[in-house]
Design a protein around this nucleic acid. Structure first.
Length: 269
DNA sequence: CTGAGATCCTGTCTGC
DNA sequence: TGCAGACAGGATCTCA
């Protein structure tokens, strides 16, 4: 479910647990995508020092007699919510109790995970990640040099975290429509102007999505359990057979790398 | 090295 | 109403 905007919003929504002490925890013991090697009970009595987002990972720094990082990834259907009390519902896999509030990790499909690690700098999942889309590092020079080495289609490339992090299926589709570039175009065939346009479109779409509270297709909610608003601005995502907003063509759906791609054959070349 | 395809898991929706 | 099949905000692994 969550791409960068949704994860950013969730991260911001749980900042209120900073400085709180973990009194207790809950684990469903169900198998998630990653099994934590350091046991969950190590977090007991720890204080939350900071909460950050790197790519689609939420990184909670905590300290008791030791120092740890609690890593959360939401996969496709993960949610993190804050609630005054806690009764484990279906698909609740992990929860932390503080004095006055619970933080609850729920994930229907279990493509996400909650893991405890000691060393963030050597953490394997953040090694080799590309730049954040809204960072200065994600610029024309960078993108030009990267794209010229990639022969597969630009849409699949945009979703590759080695190129740029956080751009999932929705925002890849919407960015390409905004830029007027066909998702089928080989990445190394983009011209200078197209690269510049695409760069600006990705940044614009991601930024707008954050401002509008993210996108809710089925079940995305923020940490207060509220839906986002960006889905109301979708121009192509999920719009198969619906007329393009810019021309008379109907939006088509195709499949690339087992994922749905939506685009306008007239507006995107 | 690259890129394509299968795969993890549960639930919902569509069409016969 | 039942049931098979497609599909869903992700990312990793294997194979050619």
């Amino acid at each position: 479910m969550p791409e960068l905007p949704e994860v950013e919003i969730i991260k911001n929504g749980i900042l209120s647990i900073e400085n709180k002490i973990i009194k207790n925890f809950y684990s469903s013991n169900k198998k998630l995508r990653v099994t934590t090697s350091i046991k969950y009970d190590k977090v007991l009595n720890a204080k939350i020092i900071s909460i950050k987002r790197i790519s689609k990972f939420i990184i909670i720094e905590l300290v008791n007699s030791d120092k740890y990082y609690l890593i959360c990834h939401l996969g496709m259907t993960g949610k993190i919510t804050l609630k005054a009390d806690f009764n484990a519902l279906k698909h609740d896999h992990f929860a932390l109790e503080f004095d006055d509030i619970w933080l609850i990790f729920n994930d229907q499909r279990r493509f996400g995970f909650v893991e405890i690690i000691k060393d963030l700098t050597t953490y394997k999942f953040i090694q080799g990640l590309g730049p954040e889309p809204l960072s200065e590092v994600f610029n024309y020079e960078y993108l030009k040099n990267k794209l010229k080495t990639i022969s597969k289609n630009i849409k699949t490339s945009l979703m590759d975290n080695k190129l740029v992090v956080g751009v999932g299926n929705i925002y890849a589709n919407e960015s390409l429509f905004d830029a007027g570039i066909s998702p089928l175009k080989p990445a190394n065939k983009l011209k200078k102007e197209e690269i510049i346009t695409l760069l600006n479109s990705v940044k614009k779409i991601i930024k707008n999505a954050i401002e509008l509270g993210g996108s809710s297709i089925k079940d995305y909610v923020n940490s207060d359990g509220k839906k986002g608003g960006f889905q109301k601005t979708f121009k192509v995502y999920g719009k198969a057979d619906i007329k393009c907003v810019n021309c008379d063509e109907k939006i088509v759906r195709i499949v690339q790398n087992q994922r749905s791609t939506f685009y306008c054959k007239t507006c995107q070349k």
